[in-house]
Deep mutational scan, measured.
Amino acid sequence: MLDDRARMEAAKKEKVEQILAEFQLQEEDLKKVMRRMQKEMDRGLRLETHEEASVKMLPTYVRSTPEGSEVGDFLSLDLGGTNFRVMLVKVGEGEEGQWSVKTKHQMYSIPEDAMTGTAEMLFDYISECISDFLDKHQMKHKKLPLGFTFSFPVRHEDIDKGILLNWTKGFKASGAEGNNVVGLLRDAIKRRGDFEMDVVAMVNDTVATMISCYYEDHQCEVGMIVGTGCNACYMEEMQNVELVEGDEGRMCVNTEWGAFGDSGELDEFLLEYDRLVDESSANPGQQLYEKLIGGKYMGELVRLVLLRLVDENLLFHGEASEQLRTRGAFETRFVSQVESDTGDRKQIYNILSTLGLRPSTTDCDIVRRACESVSTRAAHMCSAGLAGVINRMRESRSEDVMRITVGVDGSVYKLHPSFKERFHASVRRLTPSCEITFIESEEGSGRGAALVSAVACKKACMLGQ
């Protein structure tokens, strides 16, 4: 009897593995994704193909990295998701002549009506938060230079001027797309009239992360975010950046690689679950690469896999709870928690219980395998993109072996128990001629924006502006 049951459990697990095998990517698959990513990057950089390229390769006008001589107080704003952060950054000489960066910050959550109302409502709310922060720190009387981390696709015309191309991540505030974001912020500050600010720089969160990590390690020339969304930036040779005049030196390019796949480059790798996630998203047909990796989508992918296993009578005796059938019910943090389970399955059992399920031991094991399959594919897909960037940098610099540091931020990278190990191992397999160091950014977005502002202020002083 026991043997029969054991055989049935083994057969069930084997069927589960057959279904989950769809998520496995072979090294040849990853090399294919990497080569296609490089081709799209090239198209994004070139003037004649930029418009139709899915990977936009947006110039950021960040050319210099901090040298350690900029000092002063800077205000930093960070808008990239449902939370908005205001930070005071003091850049100065530390002990023994070292450079020191001290920060104080406060988080504000953005109400739904500000995210989806008008641009005026959104930026009025942001300036209200700045006003509140300055009151708390008794700094209303000071006109501070301000660095703005704005983590949406922007076409820069200068370091302090950028046109919002399109909202992502659930934002829909009308009247912002096609307009200068810094102008919208300046107008809102003017409307309030109770404080003055000098907006000197606007950067993407990947750029802010790279600059913040450069402060720790001067070989950091790539910034990457794996959180709600997924994106990367890197220092490109100016001669390859056709959208900006000049051939000397390097400029940081914001790849906006989340949109890779929007022209069909990933079609052969998309599964039924991916198509369902895409169809029910706020932007169907867009940001397809990001939807395979980002935390906004990972939990939902797992939920759809679990429903398939229920329908195949391989999980929960073929019956799903009402909660499990509800879109968004299986949160991405559950994926991390399930994979963090120590082996007694308590954590998995508790999560499934909150979803109205009474799982068996085998159910718990199957749910864990589903989570591992989805998150491992995410790590491997992400590795193909980064390997594409790094191999490109090595080739354009004609280096036999390139040493490089990548600064990384984002909740999936930082909080998932195995993502970074799987990701690092896969990147290294795909970049055999590179020695890569990964560092995690601390308060990256805010500190990085302030350091970019410090560079901009120093330049302005040198130019006598």
Rank of each mutant, 00 (worst) to 15 (best):
S212T: 03
S383D: 01
G249R: 05
K104H: 09
L45N: 03
D205M: 02
E17V: 10
E312G: 13
L45I: 01
S131D: 06
L352S: 09
R275W: 13
G68S: 14
G294N: 00
D247Q: 13
D42M: 11
E95Y: 10
A188W: 03
K136F: 08
K459G: 15
S445E: 00
E322C: 12
Q337W: 12
F195A: 02
L122F: 00
S69N: 15
K136N: 07
D311C: 14
K142P: 01
M121K: 05
I390R: 00
S453F: 00
S280A: 09
M202G: 02
E236W: 00
C129N: 02
H380A: 11
T255P: 01
E248I: 12
G410I: 02
V335A: 13
S383L: 01
S453I: 04
K104E: 07
A329I: 11
D409Y: 09
D160E: 03
A53S: 06
G147F: 01
E322S: 13
I439T: 06
D344G: 08
G170N: 04
S127A: 09
E248A: 10
E421I: 10
F438R: 04
D124C: 05
K142W: 01
S411I: 03
I436R: 04
E96F: 10
K136G: 05
M402C: 11
E40L: 03
S280I: 14
R327T: 15
C129W: 04
T49M: 07
M34V: 09
P59I: 00
I110W: 02
D124W: 01
G94F: 07
T118N: 01
C382R: 02
T206Q: 01
G385P: 04
G183C: 02
D344N: 08
D29F: 14
G229E: 00
T431P: 11
E17T: 06
S64D: 14
F269E: 10
K31D: 02
E395K: 06
G249V: 00
K161G: 03
S69A: 10
L243A: 09
V154H: 02
E300N: 12
A188M: 00
V86E: 01
F334H: 03
V253N: 10
L144N: 08
V452I: 12
C252G: 10
M37C: 08
G175R: 02
T149C: 15
V310Q: 10
L355G: 07
K32P: 04
D365V: 09
Y234P: 03
V310I: 03
K136M: 12
Q106F: 07
G229T: 00
F84Q: 01
C220M: 04
M381N: 07
R369M: 13
D409K: 02
H317K: 13
S426C: 12
D400F: 10
S69T: 15
L25G: 07
H380S: 09
Q286R: 12
Y108E: 02
T65V: 09
A176T: 05
V338K: 06
V374Y: 05
K143H: 02
E196S: 10
F269M: 09
G407L: 04
F419W: 11
D400I: 14
D363G: 10
E22K: 06
